[in-house]
Design a protein around this nucleic acid. Sequence first.
RNA 1: GCUCCCUUCGUCUAGCGGUCCAGGACACCGCCCUCUCAAGGCGGUAACACGAGUUCGAGUCUCGUAGGGAGCGCCA
Length: 472
Amino acid sequence: MTVRTRFAPSPTGFLHIGGARTALYCWLEARHRGGQFILRVEDTDRTRSTDEAVQAILDGMAWLGLDHDEGPIYQTDRGDRYRAVAHSLVEAGKAYYCTCTRERLDTLRQASLDEGRKPRYDGHCRGRRHLEAGETAVIRFQNPDHGSVAFDDRIKGRIEWANEELDDLVILRSDGWPTYNFAVVVDDSDMRISEVIRGDDHVNNTPRQINIYHALGLEPPAFAHLPMILGGDGQKLSKRHGAVGVMQYRDDGYLPHALLNYLVRLGWSHGDQEIFSNQEMVELFDVANVNSAPARFDFAKLDWLNQHYLKTNNPAAIAPQLGWHLRALGIDPDSGPAPADVVVALRERVHTLKEMAERARIWYAPVEHWDSAAVRKHLGAATAPAALAAARKAFATLPDWSPEAIHEAIKLVSAELEVGMGKVAQPLRVAMTGTQVSPSIEHTVFLAGRDGALQRIDTAIERSAGAHAGEA
RNA sequence: GCUCCCUUCGUCUAGCGGUCCAGGACACCGCCCUCUCAAGGCGGUAACACGAGUUCGAGUCUCGUAGGGAGCGCCA
């Protein structure tokens, strides 16, 4: 039997981090076993579902590169099918019409709670196979009264429930639309899903669904319930923790693969391996190895992974994404150095592309802000004027404008002046950036461009003179 | 309240009865390297929730306790 998995979000918001991991695991399981991955949109709650949310989910999956083989299939397109199956269940004596009022149901629920029992429908309408003309009703599934339901969860192991714990759930609402527990069964069986991988908030629904499978004469698929992802404080993930849409991670400067790598290791492992290419994930992933305990989301590790990929990916591949972030900051990438060169200079110093774009700003516009401590300490140094002048002269005639050539030139200057590298590099650094922190000096100078570098040195020499005059 | 699930360093995890005075990674601390900041190298602190039981032997199996979580809708 070919493996078929599905990701079935309800379009009531963006694709958040938990959904993204579920989608990833479903995708990996399908790819690993050479099967198909199906995307299904569970939009039967028409009051909460929106087209924008559908688009946000599609965008998020596309950004992560989780491509589906079938779908998106919309449940709202399948109303007739659910109604037909629900009515067939009534005819088969396995479901019935229920006309109980909300008031009666509420009273019932409250009474159970007051007595310390689990709220449960009492079966009042059991046996109603027909409706009077004009009467509206829901259809309830008639759950078995005795015995138990069990299944072997691929992550949590065997789970068993007494049927006494379950009640007759509504499968078709009075508006003719199916409820979740019924729609999934019809869909998963129609779509020949072999493995249901979903959040473990669905564990409690599984026995009800299995009973429906049996009533329909169907064999249930395999189930794998993923533990949830918690915020860094161990609380349920909320917006302040990163429960934002995955597209926010793009905006914050994360590489999609870094997020994927982080997510795949959150709750799953393969020995001591931390870094996984897409191909390795597909080869090694097995849903049965997923941890059964919930995991906390840790930005520090995500940052580390993101930087790892920033450092090891081809700069040319990262350049367009840096360009995107530069533009987001209102910087024209064409007004300064090539983004790929910026990547090389900054990738060991930042964790995200956003941070990289912010720090790249100094090469796309003249120095505006001069750090006074930096000016005083380095432009005001006794050897600064001579160092700057010598460097300027060397740069002006450098045959090859490259970090390597610049590095050699600076070494030569420091040797000639008989001062340490720092005495040349630091004044230059302040000249280029207005601060005393930047990438290695040769890259910092290189990125300014020859003309830009000479200009910045001229400006700095004036300031240096001012600093010395101020002392005198 | 009831039912179900979960519990190894701060965090993610390895561990599938002896090779574990518990390994790796992130974070943190220290040293080295060094033109700043990083990156990198080396080293360090740090965990089997608790209690019984099974066993020659338990982080690993069983049962309790405690603590977390989920579900109990004409939401998904």
